[in-house]
Every structure is written in structure tokens, then in C-alpha cells.
Design a protein around this nucleic acid. Structure first.
Lengths: 340, 340
DNA sequence: TCTGGCACTCCAGCGGTCCGAGTGCCAGCA
DNA sequence: TGCTGGCACTCGGACCGCTGGAGTGCCAGA
């Protein structure tokens, strides 16, 4: 039907206008600014229908209309044209990320870049340990009964733990142990480590067994424990823009949720490289985020994501632009990590 | 003179009252709440003098008085009684920080703890590399012409860099190199590394010389370069408390300055363990901080600070409490790092 | 040197009015 | 049947003037 088509265009126009002006948009303004080919009166009729269907709402009787979460959702789902980044933005990305010196640096630059491109709060997750592979496992004796275990992954992550060993240990023993462990683990995905560990203990020479067991145990702990919770956050200053305008209440609960990390990590749990996920307002489980939208995507070279990154902002955000920015940065980060 | 003494007490009362209520404080309220032994009229006279001397000011004619930066400064300087933490706070600190699993974890917990104790924004600096000593230097071959150098310090910091080596290198050569470097550097303060490097290159066996040179160069770069700029920030949600109340304008510039890091790092450049530094409002060089106060102290076991930590908040803050909290956390962090 | 009294100032809050933007509905037109 | 112009209606935001209260400075008296 011709009606539905026009109504869709009206909805789209409302979203665009509201996103850019932050004012409830009325029929007259719409007719003037967007070339819809019909009069304000007709648009009013369409708006009445859209409101009845729950896509838009009016803050009060004599105000214009504002998109609802459902309206944004509809808008985003119909957003088939992937907005390409401008040339300036592309070069900005390269300039910004090249010259990064280690993983920490790459992620730090990414988060700043993303915050700058989108003018939102950006979050970047450290590469998930369980999907990384061991590049090297180093043991440094601290005393005869304590070892420092340093795990270096192919994604550039470095984790360290102190291992209390059950027996006094000399430096040659440590060297043996190091050789043994590296032979076994180097190149292996960390997710497989838990399978390998028991066999390794069994097959080890007797005098090394307790040591292998202790180090393996610590290694496994490192995997399951909170180490997943590494998140870099940037651009929080962007929340202070029109705080009262963009967010109901204050930004406080939102900032708290971001620092909490776990909330965001849960949202990023299911990201895939390439497929941008958008969750809008009330779609977010966590209460503090019900006034916000979250755009995220996975990064990583394979088809499984090493980690996620994204932006958080008011539901009233430039979805097309943010999705493009998030995707572009993720791709670049993926390349950088694959190279190193 | 008796006058001066009473005037000091009046100033102190004004500061305390204003900090806790956030309302300009009048002579009547002062007389009622603080047992100054004189009538409101007398207090008014004192206040007039204090205002003339620049310690307090009134927002408008018929309002109470508010301390100026100079007033806070005077108050802080006379704050000789170190307010001890409550038992509950002490145990909170221990509970919170014990069980930290590595450096990242220690600093992360510290910043959260500090933010929670003071209800301000907390910042913690990573231990300065140049004052740390080398615990171990690890080399992992990435390809025949690239090595991954991993530096582990006695403070638990781990830095990594990729080193491009000028000649193709085999694994035995790498092992030799590792032994040589560790023999030379282990236990040495990183600040001394730059002195040692040239001699090391000279005395190395000829076939290792270019390698030693390359790795040393990277090591030195790691020291001078931005690695100083590692800062953990927490509790930004506390800025959103009474944003409009506590800060003129918005919190935006402040958040930006915090993310900038360099501003805060400059403030913490001269910290010493034990000696708490307070800089108030306009005393801060950076424009974004002129509405804020910064309380900081160094941590570290010796007399030289490994790094700094502190809190940032409105000039209208509980200086005594924050100074105590900052000092206590710093001491605890110092202990933790010395142990590991 | 402190105190009580007094006149003065000025902001915050309250209620009332007005204006404009935006709507819904209706009758007329293609 | 669907679009359009016109019209009456609603409602929130801005503006205005008023008032009460808090706080001050000053002065005369103890």
C-alpha cells in the first residue's frame, strides 16, 4: 500500500529530525524540512496512526512527537544501507591506531577514537583469554616456594599470577618446568588447556608433578576468574553534554553501571565479528540502561570474536553513524591484533 | 589576640557547615550550631573582617557566607589533627584490598575503594617504571626478525614491546641473549638501565652486539615514553551527584581533563609517600580544575614514591576525611606492593 | 568589646497571564 | 477514497509582579 510506505518515510523523518534537533517534531516542521509531497494535515493523520501503533509518542498534548523505543527499533531494522565512513574518518582511524605500541595501547587508542567519532561513551573489551592461544609461559622464581607465572597470549595480553609451590624449588627445576609447560601449551588455545592439564601432570617426571599441578591449577584459575572483566571505557565526558536533556533522571546510574563493568560485559557476551548488535532502551535488561542504547560488535580475525567493543548513548542517537563507526574500528582492531 | 583566635574558629565553623550542608551559612545558624560563646552580631563583625581579608565571600547581598579558595587553604593548613579512620573503615580497606591477585587488580580495587570511602572521583597511578627494578626480562621469538620483549618489574608491572632485530636470529641465540640481559639487568633500577646499556653492548660477544643494542634501545624507549601515563580512574559517578550544585558550568571539562590523564599526572609528579598534598581550586594550573580540589599522596615503601594516588572533588569537600582516606589507602597499597 | 535592635536588601517561590506550537476534527475537493 | 485547508482547542513555557524570609550592616547602649 502506498500509505504504509509513506508512513514509514514519516517515521524515518521523525527519527532523523528528533536525533538532530532534540526537539519533539511537529507535522509542520516535518512537511517543511522533508520533501514528503503531502500537506501537514495528512502527515498528522499518519502520525496519529503511528502513535496508535506505538512507534511514536507525544510528551504532552500540545507538543510534537518523539520516537518510542519501538520506533527506533523499527527504524534500525530498516536501516539496510550501510552508511560508509567519510574519507576523513577513515584516515583518522588509521592515523589514530597506527603507532600503537602494545595491546594496552591499541585498546586505549581505540576507545578514545570511538568516543571521538561517535561523541558517545565508548567501551572496548580486552581479548577474551579462553579464545586466545598461548604464545609463551614464563616462570620467574620469587623465592624457593613462590613462582611468578606470566602468561603471554597471541593477542598480546599478559597475565601474571603468583604460584605457591608445595616444595622448595631450585632454578634448574624451574627451567625444566618451563620447558615442559611451554612444550605442552604453546600454540594451544587456552580453552583447551583444561583438557590438557590432567594428562600433563600424569606424564610428567615424578619430581615435577606437584609443580606442574600447582602451575596448571593457577593457569586454569586465571581463565575462569574475573580476568574476563577487563574493560576500557572512554568518552564519559560525552555523557555530560546535555545530561538533563538526554537522560531522564541523572547520568549517575549509568556511570555506575559502566564502572560496574559486568553489566556491559553481559551485553557483549554474544557479539560476533561483523554483525553489529543494537539494543535500544527498554530492551536492555539492566535498569540503569533502560534509558540508553548500546551498539556493539565483536572484533577478531576469525569467525569467533576475541572480544567486543561498542558505544553507549541516549536512545536518541545517530544509529547509522554509530553502527558504521563501531564496525570500522572493530575491523581495524582485528587487523592490528592479527598482525602482531 | 583573642579576636584572631575566635575568628579562626568562626572560619573553621563556616567551612565545616558549608561542607556538610552546601548552603551559604549565616551568622545566626553559626551561633546556633557551633558553640562559639558569642552572639550572632559579634559573629557578623568577625565575618565582615574575614570577608575583607578574602577568606570568605557572599554570593549575593542577602545570603550567607561561603569560603573562598583562600579560606579553604587556611583551613587545611591549620588542620593539624590527623583524623583517624574509623575501625569500620580500616577493616573495609583490608577486606577490600586483600585477595588482590595481581598489580592490575590491586590498583583497580584501590581506586574503587578510595572512590567509595571519599565519595569522590579517585585516581591511582601505576608504579613509575623508572623507579622500579627489573625482576625479569623475557624474550619470545615471534619470527626470525622480530622478538617480543616482556619486562617484569618488582612492582608487578609488566610491559611488552615488539623488537625488530636487524639480523635473523635462532632460538639458541635468543636464549644466550636472554641470559646475558638478565644477568645485566635483573635487580637493577630501571633508571640505571640507561647507564648500563652502552657498556653492555661493548662487552657483549660480537654476534650478539646488534641484538643487545636493539633490545636495549627498545627498553630505554619503554622507559621514557608514554608508559608513565597509566592511570586508573574510578567513581566518576560521584561527579553526577549534585553536578550543578558542586561545579560551576558542567562536569564536562573536568571529565575531559581526567581522561586526558596528563593533567592529573602533572599534579601527581611531586608526591612523596606520607606527605599529603592538597591543591585547591584556583591553585590548580589547569583551567578545567579551577573549580575542583585535588588531594594526593605518594605510595611506595621507601622514601621515594613509586606512584601517586588521590581524589578529585569540589572545593567544598571534607578535606580532613579525604586526606585521611588517601593516606590510609596509600599506606596499604605500599605494603601490598612491597610484599609481592 | 560585645550585644540587641532596626532598617535595608535581595533572592526564591508562587500565582496569574499570555503566546505559540501543535493537535484533532470536519467539510470540501480530485 | 484519500488528500487538503481551515478552525477551535489544549497545554506548556516564558514572563511578570508580589511577598516572605533570611541575612546583612550599622548604631547606640551595656
Amino acid at each position: 500500500m502506498a500509505h504504509d510506505d509513506r508512513r514509514l518515510r514519516v517515521l524515518r523523518a521523525i527519527v532523523q529530525d528528533y536525533v538532530s534537533t532534540n526537539d519533539p517534531v511537529g507535522s509542520k516542521a516535518l512537511a517543511a524540512r522533508y520533501d514528503l509531497g503531502v500537506s501537514p494535515a495528512t502527515i498528522r493523520n499518519d502520525m496519529a496512526v503511528l502513535e496508535e501503533e506505538g512507534y511514536i509518542t507525544q510528551p504532552h498534548t500540545s507538543a510534537g512527537r518523539v520516537p518510542t523505543d519501538k520506533g527506533y527499533r523499527f527504524f534500525v531494522d530498516r536501516l539496510n544501507t550501510v552508511k560508509p565512513l567519510s574519507a576523513a574518518e577513515r584516515t583518522a582511524i588509521e592515523k589514530f591506531l597506527d603507532g600503537a605500541v602494545d595491546l594496552h595501547d591499541v585498546l586505549g587508542r581505540s576507545v578514545r577514537l570511538l568516543a571521538q567519532l561517535t561523541r558517545q561513551v565508548a567501551v572496548v573489551q580486552y581479548p577474551t583469554l579462553s579464545r586466545s592461544a598461548v604464545r609463551h609461559l614464563e616462570l620467574v622464581p620469587l623465592s624457593t616456594s613462590r613462582l611468578l607465572m606470566v602468561l603471554i597470549t597471541d593477542t598480546g595480553r599478559v597475565e601474571q599470577r603468583v604460584v605457591e609451590v608445595p616444595v622448595d624449588t631450585e632454578s634448574e627445576t624451574v627451567a625444566e618446568l618451563r620447558t615442559l609447560l611451554n612444550a605442552a601449551f604453546t600454540g594451544a588455545k587456552l580453552a583447551e588447556a583444561s583438557d590438557k592439564a590432567p594428562g600433563l601432570v600424569e606424564n610428567a617426571p615424578p619430581h615435577l608433578r606437584p609443580l606442574v599441578a600447582a602451575v596448571s591449577a593457577t593457569l586454569l584459575e586465571t581463565l575462569v576468574e574475573p580476568s574476563e572483566d577487563r574493560l576500557v571505557i572512554g568518552g564519559t565526558a560525552n555523557l555530560a553534554h546535555g545530561s538533563t536533556l538526554d537522560f531522564p533522571g541523572t547520568v549517575r546510574p549509568l556511570l555506575e553501571a559502566l564502572e560496574e563493568q559486568v553489566v556491559v560485559l553481559r551485553l557483549m557476551a554474544e557479539v560476533d565479528p561483523g554483525a553489529v548488535i543494537v539494543s535500544i532502551g527498554e530492551e536492555n535488561q539492566h535498569e540503569a540502561l533502560t534509558g540508553a542504547s548500546f551498539v556493539s560488535v565483536g572484533y577478531g580475525s576469525g569467525e569467533e570474536a576475541l572480544g567486543g567493543l561498542g558505544v553507549v548513548g541516549p536512545t536518541r542517537m545517530d544509529y547509522a553513524g554509530n553502527m558504521a563507526a563501531v564496525r570500522a574500528v572493530a575491523r581495524y582492531v582485528g587487523h592490528l591484533l592479527a598482525e602482531s
